[in-house]
Amino acid sequence: MSELKEELKGKIIEQLNLEDVSVADIADDDALFGDGLGLDSIDALELIVMLDKDYGIRLSDPKEGRKIFESVQVMADYIEEHRTK
């Protein structure tokens, strides 16, 4: 699980071009949207595509993302449970 969380942090930084952020700067429970990393709706779409491409998880309702992308911890839990690859 901790390996997956590190992997997710790296992917978030790389795919969302968070130039000044390192893996160590993101705590497992940090909010990704709003006051936390400050991600926005375009980033949410990028993360939905990442779930599908890298973990085989297709979200039928994009609104589900709101809960799933709450923090790296929540994302990792969801991926562990639903991943197909």
Binding site: Q15, I42, L45, E46, V49, D52, K53
Partner: peptide, 9 residues
Amino acid sequence: NNEQYLTPT
């Protein structure tokens, strides 16, 4: 990606 997984940015 064979026309799949297109991201918006």
